[in-house]
Amino acid sequence: MQLFLLVALTMTAFAANSILNRIGVAEFGMDPIDFAAIRVVAGAAMLWLLILIRSAPRPAIWVPKRWAGAIMLAIYMVGFSWAYISLGAGLGALILFGVLQVVVFGWAVIEGQTVPLMRWIGAGIALIGLCVLLWPGGQATVPFAGAMSMAAAGVGWAAYTLLGRAESDALGATAGNFLLCVPLTGLAMVVAGGGPMSVMGVLTAVVAGAVTSGLGYALWYRVLPSLPTTVAGIAQLSVPVIAVAAGAVLLAEPLTLRLLSAGALVLGGIALSLLVRR
């Protein structure tokens, strides 16, 4: 039960990231690269504050695994923020975690992990839900550039998730990843040129970085060693449904029949795939 509650809390934090990014970029006019850079700095500051006040030794920073985590985190952060120029909160989350599921399952197969049949079926149903949403035509149109940007973010986040499976110090690893990610997103901000920054947009980025990203990702690295690789991928497909509901309530985003049908398929696939856990 404790593991379930921790995973549920983490998924809620992930969904909040979608809402906060959508608000900061689309509502408050923040440049997406600026938003990502501020988010990373705020996350690093929060995590290193916790590192400094804890009694455990400080984590190693200049190691290959930390750089790998930082690069994947930067790809995710920049692609994620850029996509929300044109994507709604729920749609963006659905693309992100649909791509993540494909990458995670593919990696499990490459590693030779045994994936139960029920989990394959559930993942397939959830993936069909993603296809229902993204298939051309119908009332819901999907901006191509935004979808590709979010797909790149999904690959980055999948790699970040896979890197965290063997971390013994979740807080230290996340703090190291964020610290090394700061110059990467800062460089992206300089290259892109930046844009106007509103007070509310900056505050939104700080909350997204310090709370739902920094603390949320540390919690995710904490629970990852207790989850099979494929379950970690499937569980995250609940995030789009949370984001869709929150987007409808907080941002007045439309709930089309296509979006609701896709959400139902995704949730049904998750439930079916997790039956094997019992």
Rank of each mutant, 00 (worst) to 15 (best):
M72F: 12
R258D: 13
R22Q: 11
R54G: 07
L73E: 12
A188H: 05
V206R: 06
Y160M: 01
P254Y: 06
A151F: 04
G129W: 00
G43D: 14
K65Q: 10
A271G: 10
T212N: 11
A74C: 11
F28N: 13
A264Q: 07
R22S: 01
S86T: 15
G156I: 09
P64K: 07
S55W: 09
A42T: 04
L267G: 07
R54V: 02
V78S: 01
M200D: 10
A158Y: 05
T161W: 03
A248F: 10
V207R: 06
L215K: 05
Q2W: 04
S226A: 15
I51N: 09
A42C: 10
P136G: 11
L96M: 13
V132D: 09
I38Y: 02
A108S: 08
L163K: 01
V40M: 06
L237H: 05
L50I: 14
A89Y: 00
W62Y: 05
L133P: 01
V241R: 02
L257C: 10
P64I: 06
S168T: 10
L127T: 14
W220V: 01
G112R: 00
V155M: 07
P59F: 15
T230L: 00
S168K: 06
A246H: 10
A166I: 06
I128F: 15
A205S: 06
Y160N: 03
R258E: 15
S198H: 12
A218N: 09
L250S: 06
R119W: 02
G92T: 08
I85G: 13
S213Q: 12
A235H: 00
L272W: 14
L259R: 09
V182C: 08
V239Y: 00
M77R: 01
L260G: 08
G186K: 03
L250A: 12
S81Q: 04
Y217G: 01
G247L: 11
W135M: 12
L171S: 08
L20C: 04
T141D: 06
G214R: 11
L260A: 12
L259V: 13
A16M: 12
G124P: 04
E111D: 10
L130V: 15
G90F: 07
P183Q: 04
L237G: 02
